[in-house]
Design a protein around this nucleic acid. Structure first.
Lengths: 255, 255
DNA sequence: TTAATTTGCTAACAGTGTTCACTCTATAAA
DNA sequence: TTTATAGAGTGAACACTGTTAGCAAATTAA
C-alpha cells in the first residue's frame, strides 16, 4: 500500500507496539490478582485473544516478557520518584532526597506485587542493587534490570552529590559525628562503590558511609513494609519520619 | 505382630518419619539446585522412588510440604543462632546480641536459597516479621512460619531485656542520644510491638526505638547481602562491624 | 505482479500439581 | 488365629503449564 515516506513508525510497527502493550497489561493484571508466580503465558494469550504460540512472535520466552515488565515497572517507579522530587525547588537538595524516600516508599507499598516481582526476579539476581561489580561497570552489557535499579539509585545519589557541592561538606562540621574506624580496603571500596552512582564526583568517607547506611535502612524499611513485616503497623508515616531524622543525624544534621 | 507396649514410637511411625525426612531432604536438594520455584513434587517422588500420588499420604499439597520445610529451616536457623550465642557467657548480653547478628547473617548468606524461600513464602506473607497483629497475638492459630520467625526474633529480644535489667537502663545515661520526637500513638505502638517479643518486660521508649531501628538495619543488611545487592562486596565483614558500631551508638554505647 | 517478511494458527511434546478408585500389607481387635 | 481396619502405594486420568515445529494467510516491499 502506501510506503513509509513520512519518517514515522509504519502501520505494522504501530500495531505491534499496541499488542505488546496489551500483552504487558494482561501480564500485570495477572500479577495483581495472583502474584508473581501466577502469571501464565497461556492465560495472557487467552485474555489478549490469541494463541499461546503467537506470543513468541513478541517475546522470546515468558522470562523475557517478565524482564521487560520489570523494566517497565522500574521506569514507572523512576518517573514517580522524579516527579515527586521535582515538586521541591531544584536547589533544595535535602528536601528532594526526602521526597525520593517518600516516593520510593509510596510506590513500592502501593504496588506491592509489582515490587515483589522486581526484587525477586530473576531467581537471586541483583535486583535493587545500588551498583554492580566495579570491574564490569564499564561494559554496557549488564542485565537490563540491574541497569534500571542503578538508574533508580542514581536519582538519589546525584542529589546527594549536588547537596555536597552546595554545602561544601559543611554538614559534618557542626555535628558531633564520629565515624566508626574502618580499614583502608573498606574505605576505598565504599568510595568507589558510590562513585558508580555519583559520576565524576568524589565524596568524603563520612558522607559515603552515612549515605550507604541510609540506603540499607531505607531498603529495609520499604521491603519490610511491602512484605508486611514492619514492627509498626498503624503509625507507619511517623515511624518513617523518626527513621529519617535518625539518618539525618548520621549526617550531622538536625532538621 | 508385637503390640506397642513399650511407649515408644511404633515401627510404622518410625518408617513414616523416615520417609518424611527423605522427602524433605529431596525437596531441599532441589531448592539448592534450582531455586525455590524449581521444587517439583514429581521430581521429589522420582528421587524418593515412589509415585507422585504417594506423597499425598504425607503432605496435603506441595504448598504444605514447603511450609513444613520452611519451618524446619527456621529451626535450623534458630539452633545455629542459639549455639553461637551460647559461646558467650550467659551474662554477657551485649556479646550475645552481637553473636545473634553474626549468626543470623552467616546462616542466611551461607544458605541463600533457603533464605530466599523463607522470606518469599507464601506469596507476600509476613515472613521474618518481628511480631504479628497485637489483637490476634493471643490466639495460637497464627500461621506456623510467622510463629517461627517470632521465635527467631525473640531470641535477640530476650537478650535485650536481660541486658536492660543488667544495666538498669544505664546504657542511655552516659551517651548523648537524643530521641526523635514521636507522637503518643507511635510511642505506644512501638512499646507494645516489642512487648510481644520481650514477654513481661517493659522497656523504655529509647531502648525500644533503638532496637527497632537496629532490627530494620540488620534485616536490610542480611537481605541485601543474600540477594547480592549490598553496596560492599569485598570487605563485607568490616562493613558489618562498622554498621554494628553505628547501631550501638544509637544505644548510647561506645564499645 | 512477484517476492519476502511478518503474524497467526494447529498440533504436538514434555512437564507440572492433584484426584480417584483400586490394591496390597501391616497393624489392631475379636 | 482369624478378622476387620487403617495405612501406604499404584496406575490412570484431568486440567493445567511453557515451548517448538510446520504450515497458511496477510501485509509489506521490490
Amino acid at each position: 500500500m502506501t510506503s513509509n515516506t513520512a519518517g514515522g513508525p509504519s502501520r505494522r510497527e504501530r500495531m505491534r507496539a499496541e499488542t505488546i502493550a496489551e500483552i504487558k497489561a494482561s501480564a500485570r493484571g495477572q500479577l495483581l490478582q495472583h502474584g508473581p508466580s501466577g502469571i501464565s503465558l497461556r492465560a495472557i494469550a487467552r485474555e489478549v485473544g490469541v494463541t499461546p504460540a503467537a506470543l513468541y512472535r513478541y517475546f522470546d520466552s515468558l522470562d523475557a516478557l517478565l524482564i521487560q515488565l520489570v523494566c517497565d515497572l522500574y521506569d514507572e517507579l523512576i518517573a514517580a520518584t522524579r516527579t515527586a522530587m521535582d515538586e521541591a525547588p531544584s536547589d533544595a537538595h535535602l528536601e528532594r532526597m526526602k521526597a525520593w524516600v517518600w516516593a520510593f516508599r509510596a510506590w513500592s507499598v502501593g504496588n506491592r506485587r509489582e515490587f515483589e516481582l522486581m526484587i525477586s526476579y530473576p531467581e537471586g539476581n541483583s535486583a535493587m542493587s545500588i551498583c554492580a561489580d566495579p570491574t564490569t561497570i564499564d561494559a554496557g552489557d549488564l542485565d537490563p534490570v540491574t541497569l534500571k535499579s542503578m538508574e533508580h539509585a542514581q536519582l538519589c545519589g546525584h542529589e546527594l552529590a549536588a547537596f555536597y557541592r552546595q554545602t561544601e561538606g559543611a554538614g559534618f562540621e557542626f555535628g558531633s559525628v564520629t565515624l566508626p574506624e574502618m580499614s583502608e580496603g573498606l574505605q576505598q571500596e565504599l568510595i568507589e562503590s558510590c562513585s558508580a552512582m555519583i559520576i565524576g564526583e568524589r565524596l568524603p568517607l563520612s558522607w559515603v558511609f552515612a549515605f550507604t547506611s541510609a540506603w540499607v535502612r531505607v531498603f529495609g524499611l520499604v521491603t519490610m513494609e511491602a512484605f508486611g513485616s514492619l514492627p509498626v503497623q498503624q503509625n507507619i508515616d511517623e515511624f518513617y519520619k523518626a527513621q529519617i531524622k535518625s539518618m539525618l543525624r548520621d549526617f550531622g544534621m538536625e532538621e
